[in-house]
Nucleic acid binder design. Structure first.
Lengths: 131, 131
DNA sequence: GACAATAGGGATAAATTTCTCCCTATTTGA
DNA sequence: TCAAATAGGGAGAAATTTATCCCTATTGTC
């Protein structure tokens, strides 16, 4: 049986908060979160913009991950009382401290792009991936 | 119906390989992988040592994530033909290039430990977490 | 009037990851 | 002889995350 607290799944396994890596995992462990943060940092503030930047994420999940980032105080959400509705996200001061870290991760991925593609793709049967 | 290729789940949704962050996600997106890499880097080479360093991971999952890291060529596995069995992991040259990135992540987590604990813990009902 | 764009949620299914339990095999030590 | 340590896998369940489908509401445009 699934139970939810508001929009959030009620976890049965409590988080581990032993070291810095644990803590980071709690706030960044989500399939799209790093990219969401990065695109917000790049100035794509509105949900619809973010969705266009990351077309693979469904709108539903994008909303949920944004809510989590907001609840972790990495981003803030501003609502404009206009119609049609307008919402803008931006990084908080706290969220901004994460940018150099995300950048380091992305740069490593860019630097070793070829190697990474090689080791990732070799796990898939032929013809399932078209580079 | 679940199907597995050897030890690995046969994915139905293919990976996204658009940018560096996607690529990194493919090899580091696992609950324990960053810590596994970090402890190997610190010199804890044997599976049993790693399990003692990370008691929260089950032995089964530790093995699986080690296999994935090996298949992604971030670590290498050396078997000593002795009894009882002895296995040692170490970082590959490629894996070593990741250490500064993991360190940056961990340092950020350490630096903002208090803030992170605060925003994480506030999502849990009272008395479920004992700091 | 029909339709797109805007933001977002409910319900539910599917995918994926992680966990639990149990089993193999060998050597050392009590 | 029995237990512990070593490395590791199978089967299946549970937990968690992500995806899909559909709905609300308003304004502007064709």
């Amino acid at each position: 049986m699934l139970t939810y607290i508001c929009w959030m799944y009620e976890r049965k396994i409590l988080p581990y908060l032993n070291c810095g890596l644990d803590l980071v995992g709690e706030v960044l462990y989500g399939k799209w979160k790093l990219r969401i943060l990065w695109f917000i940092h790049e100035g794509h503030k509105r949900p619809s913009e973010l969705q266009r930047k990351i077309p693979d994420v469904s709108r539903r999940v994008l909303n949920i991950q944004l809510k989590e980032l907001e609840s972790h105080e990495l981003v803030s959400r501003k609502i404009y009382p206009v119609m049609p509705p307008k919402v803008e996200y931006k990084l908080t001061d706290f969220g901004r401290t994460l940018i150099p870290v995300i950048q380091a991760i992305g740069l490593w991925g860019d630097k070793y792009e070829e190697k990474l593609k090689e080791v990732i793709i070799k796990q898939f049967p032929e013809a399932t991936l078209t580079p």
